[in-house]
């Protein structure tokens, strides 16, 4: 099976939001699942489901990769490493620093690309529109910084 065209993936991802709400009564989100993982030492509150949801994501990724034939544990390098010539330890450092900013920023903004950009904007939330504008500003800035550091567009 091939990966899906943008419209099919968009309908599926967007359609999953009300279906999940109908099933569970909840608005889906991912970044708060990491926050739950960070508070595992404490007694489980009402938010523990977010951790279970997050833990399901790798299983879905596995299913997707098996369906498209893209499963390959030997792929040790992200496209970001190849495009910007960052290899070995430097790549892992870049991914970890990027990840740290993602985690820190998501907790500051109160959500990520799922909870803010898809669910929140669909709900018409001002906070989600502003957060997503921030996501885009940061994303463009970081990518073009990497392009500049790598010496231009490859």
């Amino acid at each position: 099976m091939q990966t899906w065209p943008f419209w099919l993936a968009g309908i599926a991802i967007g359609g999953f939001v009300p279906l999940f709400a109908l099933l569970s009564g909840k608005a889906l989100g991912v970044s708060s699942g990491y926050a739950e993982a960070c508070s595992l030492g404490k007694p489980a509150g009402n938010e523990r489901w977010k951790l279970w949801f997050a833990l399901g994501l790798p299983l879905g990724g596995l299913a997707g990769a098996l369906a498209t034939g893209g499963f390959d544990v030997a792929a040790s390098s992200s496209a970001i490493a190849e495009q910007f010539h960052v290899h070995g330890t430097a790549q892992y450092l870049l991914l970890a620093v990027g990840g740290a900013l993602v985690g820190y920023g998501a907790r500051m903004a109160g959500g990520c690309t799922s909870g803010h950009s898809i669910v929140g904007i669909a709900l018409g939330a001002k906070s989600s529109v502003v957060a997503t504008i921030g996501f885009m500003i940061g994303g463009f800035a970081a990518t073009w910084l990497l392009i500049a550091l790598a010496g231009g567009v490859a």
């Binding site: 870049l94 991914l95 990027g98 900013l101 993602v102 920023g105 799922s114 996501f135 940061g138």
Partner: peptide, 16 residues
């Protein structure tokens, strides 16, 4: 927070 997240999104080419 959104901008910080976005910088990380661009650097890691991944979100949560």
């Amino acid at each position: 927070g959104g901008i910080v997240f976005g910088l990380g999104w661009g650097l890691s080419a991944a979100c949560p």
